[in-house]
Amino acid sequence: MNNRRVFMDGIIFNNPTFVQVIGMCPTLAVSNSAVNGFGMGLAATAVLIGSNIVISMLRKATPDEIRIPIFIVVIATFVTIIEMIVQAFFTPLYEALGIFLPLIVVNCIILARAEAFAFKNSVFSSAVDGLSNGLGFTLALTILGVIRELFGAGSVFGKTVMWGSFEPMSIIVQPAGGFLVLGILLAIFSIFTAKKASV
């Protein structure tokens, strides 16, 4: 498989959120504003690239039976590093993401890429795969974040864009709104994919 194909797969054709529907917890929990979604996406991308590279480098030395614990240790190490970096340099984001920052370690996307891709492919391809899946995740989170912030708070990336008399629908930034908006987006996505399949 060439690297351009790998790259496009992760972002669009095999998008972790819209196509594979995995990694739902952070997707729903931190997409209540565009900045949070974007920040979470980038943090997960950094972990994903790092863990994919290391796991791919170790793939010949890793015994099959205990690969999952090894993956988890590698991922947890990168999560700890990223957590410290975010805490030191992006303190407001650190506080906004709260418990979901250490919880990147149990994001199914990262373990899924380790198992399905990095363990079987070369280091460079794995880095590309990590980058593309991470960006696909970031894209999905940002789209969700923009929609929820727009309707729930009347702003985008913290800037007010709705007209003055606009009454924010605060339910959209609540957990219930997260489920609702993602449900609508997935339904729209499936209309398009169904059309494509029937042609």
Partner: peptide, 14 residues
């Protein structure tokens, strides 16, 4: 058709 599977499940959860 479009709502089958995950979308309707998400609405229910909502």
């Amino acid at each position: 058709e479009a709502f089958k599977g995950f979308p309707i499940a998400l609405f229910t959860a909502s």
